[in-house]
Amino acid sequence: MAMSQEGKLVAMIADEDTITGFLLAGVGNVDLRRKTNYLVVDSKTTTKQIEDTFKDFTSRDDIAVVLISQYIANMIRYVVDNYRNTIPAILEIPSKDHPYDPNQDSILSRVKHMFSSDPASASRG
């Protein structure tokens, strides 16, 4: 039960409303270099920006969890699917215009895959 000494952040890549809500909850952080732990994605945001931010968040050691709206994750699906580290954890979340679809979730689809083949497959490795 080792505790790490420093608290880590929850980062977000989502639409403005979702981020507003989480900022209200107190998740938002701005450091001395004015670097934030969130990216607001709107119609002007490029896929490249999203991808860069995703890579940045997943390589920062002060971040423990990255929340990403599922429809945004779909825009950079190949990056998300290829992410193999356990920390920071990537979590796909629904947004108000895009109800959550478990079939698109990269973790859940792995779960499904395991269960859809035979039940013994999980222990086969």
């Binding site: 505790m3 952040l9 107190g26 952080n29 732990n37």
Partner: peptide, 15 residues
Amino acid sequence: VFENVSSATIKVRSK
């Protein structure tokens, strides 16, 4: 709300 962001008050500890 965006202007009021400074330091996170909800954080995550890992064990």
